[in-house]
Simulated scan of single mutants.
Amino acid sequence: MKRVVVLDYGSGNLRSAQRALERVGADVKVTADPSAAAGADGLVVPGVGAFAACMAGLSEVDAKRVVDERVAADRPVLGICVGMQVLFDRGIEHGVESEGLGVLPGRVERLAAPILPHMGWNTVSAAEGSRLFAGLDADTRFYFVHSYAVHDTEGLVTSAEHGEPFVAAVERGPVSATQFHPEKSGDAGAALLENWLQTV
């Protein structure tokens, strides 16, 4: 059984992420312990709320060192929602620019959409060769709640649209990330988490 740590840094849907991962067969621990996060087979970085606040919480648990070391050692990391956004270089919210963890290239910016937040179910255009979306139909819907997004990055980029195209998910080396919430996306989210677990 794969050992997965959901990183507790004061933000995120920790228990729902834990339950969703347990549903697909992972042995899950929710903890702020950097050594446990470093040693797990897979690390999940959740997140809700503001980019800067999440980064402040991550700094308290030495997350940058842990994530950097995992990426350098080719050990899987999964970011969810703001947990995806903080993996990028920078985030801009309310005119304030904050530094991210910097393991993915790109900037998080406000969506140009008539209605924000983007809240509800949406389809995605999965990247060719994606392991996260393997076996999922093109009309599969996932649950989004966000007002900010990344528009350009490197790797296998899965896109979605709300007012404009944005990055819905990205896979680059050991790093996977979703702007939507797989733990709130029912059977589709479970299938995606199962796919991720197979990479762990």
Rank of each mutant, 00 (worst) to 15 (best):
L87V: 02
P114E: 14
L87D: 01
I80V: 09
P117C: 12
A73Q: 12
G95L: 06
P105D: 13
A63S: 10
V96Y: 13
D68A: 15
I115E: 10
P76H: 15
H94Y: 11
D68F: 01
M119A: 12
E109P: 12
L101C: 04
V82K: 02
L111Y: 06
V86P: 07
F88L: 02
V77C: 08
N122Q: 08
E69S: 14
N122A: 13
W121C: 12
I115S: 13
P76F: 09
E69F: 00
R90P: 03
P76A: 10
H94D: 14
E97T: 13
P105L: 05
V67H: 00
W121Y: 07
E69I: 02
A113S: 15
G120K: 09
V82G: 01
P117Y: 10
L87H: 01
G83Y: 09
E69L: 02
F88Y: 09
G83E: 11
A63I: 02
M119K: 11
L78Y: 07
S98Q: 14
I80M: 04
L116D: 07
V108A: 01
F88T: 00
A72D: 12
G106A: 09
V71A: 08
L111F: 05
V71D: 03
P117V: 13
V66A: 02
V77W: 04
V86F: 07
L116R: 06
G100M: 13
D89M: 06
D68N: 10
V77K: 13
G120T: 13
L78H: 15
L104D: 02
A63Y: 01
G91Q: 11
P76E: 07
L111C: 07
G102D: 01
G102I: 00
L101Y: 01
R75T: 01
L104Y: 05
E99C: 00
V71L: 09
L111G: 05
E109K: 11
V82N: 06
L78D: 15
V96F: 12
H94K: 06
L101T: 00
G91E: 14
E99T: 12
Q85Y: 07
E109N: 12
V82F: 03
G79R: 12
L116K: 12
V103W: 10
P117K: 10
